[in-house]
C-alpha cells in the first residue's frame, strides 16, 4: 500500500517471494467469456506452478538468459560504423551473438494456451512482443522436435490445414518477419520458413495456414504460422511462440480487421499467479494513460517508447533528457529486468539507496547490484519509483515492479544499467 507520505510503498515481504502454489485468477481466463467480449487468454509464468513446471531455473540462470536476450536486442540496434545511421539487423544475418551456454533468446517467460486446427488442439505458446512469427512444432518432426508438454500438432489430423505455396505472396512476406528469405520445397513447392535466434536456437518448417482458436467464440481462419519440422533450443516445454510484434505476419497484424490491432495484457504478479492476454479494445477496467509508440530508432518491429524521466520517492531525478533520447527505449514482454542508460541507472540506484538506509545491505545477485537483507522484517517501506513517458504519462510502479525477491536475505532493486549509453 502507499505510505501516508505518498512517496513510499509499504510491502509485505512475503508478496515479493516465490510461492509453490498456483493462485489462479477466477475470471478472464480461456473460454470464460461472453460472446460479445474480447477474447482473453490466461497467462501463466513459464517456470511457475501454474504452468506445471517441475523445476524453475535459478535466478542466476534467469539473468544469464535475460542478458543474452538484451544483448541480442542491443545488437539489432547497433549502428553502422561511421555513418551514424541505424542499420536494421536481423539476428540470423549480420548479427553475430556469441552463443552462451544455457542462454536462450527469442523466448520469453509467459505462456498462453491457444487452439489450433480442426478439431482444435490446445497448444501452450510463449507470448512475445519482441518477435513476429507464430510457430509450433509439427508432426512428423521430419528433422527434430524437442520435448513439449502438449502433444505435437499433427497437420494430417486437421481438416483446415494447408501449406503455403512458394509462389504465394504470403511466402514473400516471411523475410521481414523472420529475417530470412523463405525456402521452397522442391518436391511439393511449399514455402519453407526459417527463424533463428541469437543463441542459435531455431525453428524451420512449412509456412502454412490453419484455423486458430483464441476461445470458442473467437476463431481465426487461414491464420499464417510456422509448422516446425526442425526445432532446437531452450524453449522449455512450450509448443512454440506467439509473435506479437509489429510485422505483417504477427498475430496483431493478421487479426487487424477483427481486433483493430489492439491487445492488452496483465502479466502475473508472481510466478505462482496468473494474468491474461486479451485481443481487441474495450473492457478496460480503469483509466488508461497513453504514450506514443515510437519507431524504436529504426527497428520498426519492436515497440519503442520515449522515457523522459524517472522519479524516486516523488522527486524527479536530475537526469538530462539527452540520456534517454540517446538510447531510446523499447517495451518487451520477454525481458525480465528493465535496463537503463548508465547515467539513469546510477541516479536511480543512488536515490533508491538513500531511501533504503534503514535496511541492511546484501550481496549482489547476478546483474542486480543493489540488494538488501530483509530477513528480519515482515514488511518494508520502499521509495516509490515512477517512470515518466512522452506525452506526460506518469507510471507508478508497484513494489513487485521495483524489487526482485530471491529470498528474504536477498531482495534487490529490479533494474540494471547498460554499459553503453547508446544501447
Amino acid at each position: 500500500k502507499v505510505a501516508p507520505d505518498g512517496h513510499h510503498l509499504t510491502v509485505e515481504l512475503a508478496a515479493l517471494l516465490p510461492s509453490a502454489a498456483c493462485s489462479r485468477r477466477s475470471a478472464k481466463v480461456t473460454g470464460v467469456k461472453k460472446e460479445d467480449s474480447s477474447p482473453s487468454l490466461e497467462v501463466v509464468h513459464r517456470h511457475g506452478p501454474c504452468a506445471g513446471a517441475s523445476k524453475a531455473p535459478s535466478e542466476a540462470e534467469i539473468f544469464v538468459r535475460d542478458q543474452a536476450r538484451v544483448d541480442l536486442i542491443h545488437s539489432k540496434f547497433s549502428e553502422e560504423s561511421g555513418s551514424g545511421s541505424v542499420q536494421r539487423i536481423r539476428p540470423s544475418k549480420a548479427t553475430k551473438i556469441p552463443a552462451k551456454s544455457g542462454a536462450t533468446i527469442g523466448s520469453g517467460n509467459y505462456i498462453v494456451s491457444v487452439g489450433l486446427g480442426t478439431p482444435k488442439k490446445e497448444l501452450s505458446l510463449i507470448f512475445d512482443t519482441g518477435s513476429d512469427l507464430t510457430w509450433t512444432q509439427c508432426e512428423p518432426c521430419a528433422r527434430y522436435c524437442y520435448s513439449q508438454k502438449d502433444p505435437v500438432f499433427a497437420p494430417s489430423k486437421s481438416t483446415s490445414y494447408s501449406n503455403i505455396s512458394c509462389s504465394s505472396p504470403s511466402c514473400s512476406q516471411l523475410e521481414s518477419g523472420t529475417g530470412n528469405e523463405p525456402g521452397c520445397s522442391s518436391a511439393t513447392k511449399s514455402c519453407i520458413y526459417g527463424i533463428q535466434y541469437g543463441d542459435q536456437s531455431f525453428s524451420v518448417g512449412y509456412f502454412a495456414k490453419e484455423t486458430l482458436s483464441l476461445s470458442s467464440y473467437d476463431v481465426i481462419e487461414n491464420f499464417l504460422f510456422g509448422c516446425g519440422q526442425n526445432n532446437r533450443g531452450l524453449f522449455g516445454s512450450a509448443a512454440g511462440l506467439l509473435g506479437l510484434g509489429q510485422d505483417k505476419i504477427s498475430i496483431v497484424k493478421q487479426t487487424a480487421q477483427k481486433y483493430g490491432q489492439i491487445f492488452s495484457y496483465c502479466l502475473p504478479k508472481t510466478a505462482s499467479s496468473t494474468g491474461y492476454l486479451t485481443f481487441g479494445g474495450g473492457g478496460n477496467g480503469g483509466a488508461l494513460k497513453y504514450t506514443p509508440i515510437t519507431k524504436a530508432h529504426g527497428v520498426a518491429n519492436f515497440y519503442g517508447l520515449d522515457v523522459v524521466g524517472i522519479k524516486v520517492g516523488g522527486t524527479q531525478l536530475p537526469i538530462s533528457s539527452s540520456v534517454f533520447s540517446t538510447s531510446g527505449a523499447i517495451i518487451d514482454s520477454g525481458t525480465v529486468i528493465t535496463r537503463l542508460p548508465p547515467a539513469a541507472y546510477d541516479a536511480l540506484k543512488s536515490a533508491f539507496q538513500k531511501g533504503m538506509t534503514a535496511y541492511p545491505k546484501a550481496p549482489e545477485l547476478s546483474i542486480l547490484d543493489t540488494c538488501y537483507d530483509l530477513s528480519k522484517y515482515t514488511s518494508v517501506d520502499v521509495p516509490k519509483v515512477s517512470f515518466l513517458f512522452k506525452g506526460g504519462t506518469e507510471l507508478d510502479l508497484d513494489a513487485i515492479g521495483i524489487l526482485y525477491g530471491a529470498s528474504p536475505e536477498q531482495v534487490c532493486l529490479a533494474f540494471a544499467g547498460n554499459q553503453d549509453p547508446r544501447s
Binding site: K1, V2, L9, V11, E12, A15, T129, L244, Q246, V252, K253, A256, G260, Q261, I262, F263, S264, Y265, C266, L267, P268, K269, G275, Y276, G281, N284, G285, G286, A287, L288, K289, Y290, T291, P292, I293, Y303, L305, I331, T393, L395, D396, D398, A399, I400, G401
Partner: peptide, 30 residues
Amino acid sequence: VAIIGNVQQKSLQVVYDVGGGRVGFGYNGC
C-alpha cells in the same frame, strides 16, 4: 478500518493500440 483492496495484488494492465500508435497503462484493469 475496512480493507477493500490490496495494492500489492493489483497488476498493471498494458494496452497496445498498434493502429493508433500508442501504448496505454492502466492501474485498475486487471
